[in-house]
C-alpha cells in the first residue's frame, strides 16, 4: 500500500471533500495560492479559486465569527488557523457562539464548521506557537475534539469531520506532519468516539495521544524484549471519548497509565482516571497514573523545551513504576 505523510493524507481528505461538496470553503492566512503555512491546501487554489480558498487578514476572531454565520446559512467553512494559539483571540466566538448555536436554536440550525491546525511542542516554537489546549474544548458542550496520531487516522477523521454537522476542533501535532503511514487509495471514514487499540497486551494499559503514541510504542518495544506486553490505546477523539474501550482494556490488564504532552491539571488524563475509577475500580490492581508535560508555559531554548515534554526514558520509567505497584 502507498505511504503518505500526515499532512498529505489530511490534504487528500480535504481535496476529496471539496471536490464532492461545493459548499465547503477554507479560510486562513496564506491558505490561497501559497498553499498554507503547513501545506494544508497546496494545489487547491488552482482548482477552486479565491472564494473557496479564502486568504484572510490576521483576524482570528473575525474569521471565526464570520464562519459561524456562514455555517448557519448553508455553507461548510473550514478554518485553517495554522497554530491553535492564534484562535485564542476568537475564544468568545468559539465558546459563546460556535458551540452553542445548535442548542440555542433547539437543533434547527446546524454548525458544520471544522477548525483545523497545529498543536504541540516542537522545534523551539516557543510559547505562542506550542499550545495544545484541547481540554479547554472538551470542557465545553458542543465541540467534537479530534487529535489524530498518524496519517491514516488524519485522513479518515478529517473526512468524517467534513461530512458532519457539528463543530470540530481538528488538532494536528506538528511533530507528526512529516511522518508517513500506509493510506489506502479507497475512500474510508473513521467514526468519532472510536479508540484505536494500537498494540495489544496484558501487563498494563497505556492511553496516549498524538505524538506520545510513538514514544509509548518505543517503550513497549523495550518491554516486549523483556517478555512484558503493554496494551496501547489511542482515543483518536477526546470528545467524544471512547471510555468503553479503555475500560475493557483495564479489565484485562488491571493497570492504567495516561501519557499526554498536555498539562495534567483538569486534563484528559484526569477525566479518564475519574471515569475508570468510577466504573472500573474493581478491575484496578494499582493506582491510575498520569505522565504529562510540565505545567508551565513552553520555553524556547532547546534544553528547556525538551525538559517540559515527556521523553522516551520517562515514558519507560513510568510504565515500569506502574508495573511495580
Amino acid at each position: 500500500m502507498r505511504e503518505l505523510t500526515y499532512t498529505a493524507a489530511a490534504r487528500e481528505a480535504l481535496a476529496e471533500e471539496m471536490a464532492r461538496d461545493p459548499s465547503i470553503f477554507v479560510v486562513g492566512e496564506g491558505i490561497g495560492q501559497r498553499g498554507g503555512n503547513f501545506n494544508t491546501t497546496t494545489g487547491l487554489y488552482d482548482l477552486y479559486g479565491p472564494m473557496r480558498l479564502r486568504d484572510t487578514p490576521i483576524v482570528e476572531r473575525g474569521f471565526i465569527g464570520m464562519c459561524t454565520g456562514a455555517a448557519m446559512t448553508g455553507t461548510r467553512p473550514v478554518v485553517d488557523f495554522m497554530f491553535v494559539d492564534f484562535i485564542l483571540d476568537g475564544m468568545g466566538e468559539l465558546i459563546n457562539q460556535v458551540a452553542k448555536i445548535q442548542y440555542m436554536s433547539s437543533g434547527r440550525l446546524k454548525m458544520p464548521m471544522v477548525l483545523r491546525g497545529s498543536i504541540g511542542i516542537s522545534g523551539a516554537s516557543a510559547t505562542h506557537h506550542s499550545g495544545s489546549y484541547y481540554p479547554l474544548f472538551v470542557n465545553i458542550p458542543g465541540f467534537r475534539v479530534v487529535v489524530p496520531s498518524n496519517a491514516y487516522d488524519a485522513k479518515g477523521l478529517l473526512k468524517t469531520a467534513l461530512r458532519g454537522d457539528d463543530p470540530v476542533m481538528f488538532l494536528e501535532h506538528k511533530a507528526l506532519f512529516n511522518q508517513k503511514a500506509s493510506v489506502p487509495e479507497e475512500e474510508y471514514f473513521i467514526p468519532f468516539g472510536k479508540a484505536a487499540i494500537v498494540r495489544e497486551g496484558t501487563a498494563a494499559t497505556v492511553v496516549a495521544l498524538a505524538s506520545m503514541i510513538r514514544k509509548v510504542n518505543e517503550a513497549a518495544d523495550t518491554l516486549a524484549k523483556e517478555g512484558v506486553n503493554i496494551e496501547i490505546i489511542d482515543p483518536r477523539t477526546v470528545a467524544p471519548l471512547d471510555i468503553e474501550t479503555i475500560l475493557q482494556s483495564v479489565h484485562k490488564t488491571g493497570r492504567l497509565l495516561i501519557v499526554d504532552e498536555n498539562f495534567g491539571p483538569c486534563g484528559i488524563g484526569a477525566e479518564i482516571a475519574a471515569q475508570v475509577t468510577a466504573r472500573g475500580f474493581d478491575d484496578l490492581d494499582a493506582p491510575i497514573q498520569r505522565l504529562n508535560g510540565v505545567h508551565t508555559p513552553t520555553p524556547y531554548s532547546p534544553p528547556l523545551e525538551a525538559a517540559v515534554v515527556p521523553n522516551s526514558a520517562q515514558v519507560l520509567q513510568a510504565i515500569r513504576d506502574l508495573l511495580a505497584e
Binding site: S23, G69, A70, M72, T73, G74, T75, E93
Partner: peptide, 26 residues
C-alpha cells in the same frame, strides 16, 4: 438567525451570511 447576549458577534455572523450568499450565489 438569532439574537445574542454578547455584543458584537452579530456583526461577524451577518458577514458570514453574506459570504454564504456570495459563494452559493443565492
Amino acid at each position: 438567525m438569532g439574537t445574542s447576549g454578547i455584543v458584537g458577534p452579530c456583526i461577524l455572523q451577518a458577514t458570514g451570511a453574506g459570504y454564504s450568499a456570495k459563494l452559493m450565489n443565492t
